[in-house]
């Protein structure tokens, strides 16, 4: 107590000064509306900085929920974008000419691998959310794989990083088509097979999904060509492609389901002798 009083006595001049200064500032702001506004602005300047800070912290804790909402919104946008890519079947005067029988759901990847030659992925939705077997899984910048088996709440996906999986592709600026296969090298390094050497292609051409299979619609961009070699013996190109997205680092994905897949499979079966 004695020390406090001593300190008060020692610093009595600054204390008195700041007390009177505060009083005169109050006096100033009560007498002049200009100064009142100015002082208010000053207070607002500091408090807005504080609000910004607290807001950024709150936003950080909201991120999970925000991500979920964005993912859902992206699902709808993805459907619109893919529908726009769909080829015209007949003249637009005759009504909506595009056929887009796909339904899109958002899922999250909960287990991913790239170390094996045949990799599998687990996603966090199953039969309860309407995911079925034999449907495609895509990401924001490419293809992730095909659903192999489904449980109640989870599903396992054959990753695109699987040596036996072939995906039908074509080129953005050329109608040549072939298939995309992983050779077990880097996670974005793929080879493109079965493209006849008469097709006009260049380095850097973009590969998109071909739409020939019932899994994926036409026009999902996958990657670019990084190496072309014309093999004159076989009559096919030997090509390497680089994917836009590393499939082993994906978290958000979309299950894309073809409503008419049963019909197509039936016809395929019938056609075979």
């Amino acid at each position: 107590m004695q020390r406090i009083i001593n300190a008060l006595v020692q610093f009595r001049n600054p204390i008195l000064y700041f007390f009177l200064l505060g009083f005169s500032l109050l006096f100033l702001s009560s007498r002049s509306s200009f100064h009142q506004n100015k002082i208010g602005e000053l207070g607002f300047y500091f408090s807005s900085g504080l609000y910004k800070f607290s807001n950024s912290i709150n936003q950080y804790f909201d991120l999970k929920e925000k991500n979920r909402i964005l993912h859902q919104e992206n699902t709808q946008l993805k459907a619109l974008a893919l529908k726009k890519n769909a080829p015209f079947l007949y003249d637009p005067y005759l009504g909506n000419p595009k056929r887009f029988p796909f339904k899109i759901r958002n899922v999250n990847v909960i287990k991913n691998s790239l170390l094996n030659q045949r990799n599998y992925i687990i996603i966090d939705k199953g039969t309860e959310d309407g995911v079925q077997t034999e449907v495609g899984v895509i990401t924001s910048n490419g293809v992730l794989g095909i659903v192999k088996s489904v449980s109640k709440k989870y599903a396992s996906v054959i990753s695109i990083l699987h040596q036996d999986l072939k995906i039908n592709v074509r080129f953005k600026h050329s109608n040549a088509f072939g298939s995309l296969v992983w050779k077990g090298k880097g996670p974005t390094e793929f080879s493109v097979e079965d493209i006849v050497s008469s097709a006009q292609l260049q380095l850097g051409d973009t590969i998109v999904t071909g739409g020939m299979s019932s899994y994926f619609p036409y026009g999902i961009p996958l990657g670019t060509i990084t190496h072309i070699e014309n093999d004159s013996n076989s009559g096919y190109y030997i090509m390497t492609a680089e994917l836009f997205e590393n499939p082993s680092q994906v978290y958000a994905a979309y299950v894309i389901e073809n409503k008419f897949k049963g019909e197509i499979d039936f016809l395929n079966k019938e056609a075979k002798p």
Partner: peptide, 14 residues
């Protein structure tokens, strides 16, 4: 007037 004289003379005396 406002408090300008007060603040100025107070500060200067301090």
């Amino acid at each position: 007037t406002g408090g300008a004289h007060t603040i100025a003379s107070l500060s200067v005396s301090f």
